[in-house]
């Protein structure tokens, strides 16, 4: 049974509240291009970054947990780690490749995560920019240093 409400035309206006500004309900489509949208952003970078986080994440679960089991759990835990232990492991190209892949994937995965965190919390444009400059610098330095160390390791040093 229909209940009578305040004066309405075809049931559209059910209350006698003041008419609301219709533009208050206007939500721009998220992909709408505005004056502030850069021209260079017409790529799938964000989607590819999202996909990379998931693909690298799956691989890192195996690489990092394997690394933790070897380094911290088996054979006396951390106490066994020494230069000789590292030399023994890096004598094998398999473990060199393992560590190299883990280094690259973990650094890129972590750097992209930090990029998200910076984008979320640094509100000023200049703050965001310089934090990302610092992030990229530290990431490039660390990845290159680690790669160099793995490839130039010398068990007979000094």
């Amino acid at each position: 049974m229909a209940i009578e409400t305040t004066g309405s035309v075809s049931g559209v206006e059910l209350t006698n509240a003041a008419p609301t500004d219709p533009s208050a309900f206007l939500i721009e489509p998220p992909r709408a291009r505005t004056k502030r949208t850069g021209r260079k952003s017409r790529t799938n970078f964000e989607m590819l970054a999202w996909l990379f986080m998931r693909l690298s994440g799956v691989v890192l679960v195996f690489l990092v947990l394997g690394h933790l089991i070897i380094q911290l759990v088996l054979d006396g835990g951390v106490t066994k780690i020494s230069f000789a232990f590292v030399a023994g492991r890096w004598a094998s190209p398999f473990w060199q490749g393992w560590d190299l892949l883990m280094l690259w994937l973990a650094m890129l995965h972590g750097a992209n995560g930090m990029r998200t965190v910076i984008n979320d919390y640094a509100e000023r444009d200049t703050t965001r920019f310089w934090l990302k400059v610092l992030l990229v610098t530290a990431t490039v330095f660390t990845v290159l240093l680690g790669t160099l160390v793995i490839f130039t390791f010398d068990p007979n040093i000094s």
Binding site: T142, L148, V149, T152, F153, D154, I157
Partner: peptide, 20 residues
């Protein structure tokens, strides 16, 4: 984890300095 990773790559890089 990301901050630890920086420290960890740096400490491992010491294998290029000397075993000591």
């Amino acid at each position: 984890i990301f901050f630890f990773l920086f420290a960890h790559v740096l400490d491992t890089a010491l294998v290029r300095v000397s075993p000591e």
